[in-house]
């Protein structure tokens, strides 16, 4: 409900009350606040005493935030009925209908839980939580900072990826194989459809040479950009896992 209140800081200056819309939620909350601002205890009498303010407020709220105001109008109409009964005592209330005292009892219970909420909030502000030993998340991995990485390690990784491309003196001039990104996209999609997930290492290992590797890599980026696949890495230097976002086995 709080999210539907609209702009912050809107205040009502009805009947001398300054009530910030952000400060309460729900009709019971408003009623409790109106009663407390009058310095009254929560009783059936004080509930009726703030009826006019509440009804006026509910109407004003209704004009501004129709959706959020319906619950307020419901309570407002109930209050108006109760008040009219109090003013005209000969009108016998029906048994199953709520009386002002019932409403006061609900407010009293609600106000008690508001004090519980305040107490819990104070505990959080004191910042004293206990921690369970196996609590998630696990100890954080130190993240390697850019620039402090090992250059040799990086080169080795690159070498590992491209070692398929060891230049061999060729006796016969063979035509360069060409790879189209679009073909690779289709291949990857087919593999993802049948398997669901692929590791980038496996994809790289399936490439015959550097040109194919590059085309495949661009295809991976393309799939991610199209949101056809998502990539995840569990930690620094961990395996990069490509997962189909469209499920697998049926498509």
């Amino acid at each position: 409900m709080t999210a539907t209140w609209g702009p912050a800081g809107q205040a009502s200056s009805l009947t001398g009350f300054e009530i910030d819309i952000e400060d309460f939620e729900g009709p019971l909350d408003l009623l409790v606040q109106l009663i407390e601002k009058q310095g009254l205890d929560i009783t059936g009498v004080s509930v009726l005493a703030v009826t006019d303010q509440f009804v006026a407020y509910a109407h004003q709220l209704h004009e501004r935030f129709a959706e959020a105001a319906s619950e307020f109008l419901l309570v407002a109409s109930r209050l108006a009925l109760l008040k009219s009964r109090a003013l005209l005592p000969q009108a016998e209330p029906e048994d199953e209908e709520e009386s002002a005292d019932d409403l006061a009892e609900r407010l009293r219970i609600y106000a008690a839980f508001k004090t519980v909420a305040v107490d819990l909030d104070a505990r959080l502000r004191a910042g004293q939580s206990a921690f369970i030993r196996v609590a998630q998340p696990s100890l954080p991995q130190p993240t390697p900072e850019p620039g402090t990485g090992d250059l040799m390690r990086l080169l080795k990784a690159l070498e590992g990826l491209t070692q398929v491309d060891t230049p061999v003196a060729s006796l016969i001039e063979t035509p360069t194989r060409r790879f189209r990104v679009a073909d690779k996209v289709r291949d990857l999609q087919a593999m993802l459809t049948s398997r669901g997930t692929l590791t980038f290492d496996a994809i790289a290992a399936s490439c015959a040479d550097r040109a194919e590797l590059i085309a495949t890599f661009v295809a991976v980026l393309h799939l991610v950009k199209q949101r056809a696949a998502s990539v995840e890495q569990s930690g620094p230097f961990g395996a990069i896992v490509l997962t189909s976002t469209r499920g697998h086995g049926h498509g």
């Binding site: 409900m1 709080t2 939620e25 839980f113 508001k114 519980v116 909420a117 305040v118 819990l120 909030d121």
Partner: peptide, 10 residues
């Protein structure tokens, strides 16, 4: 939020 804390208290 206070809404969540009230609910938790209940």
């Amino acid at each position: 939020s206070s809404a969540a804390l009230e609910t938790l208290g209940i």
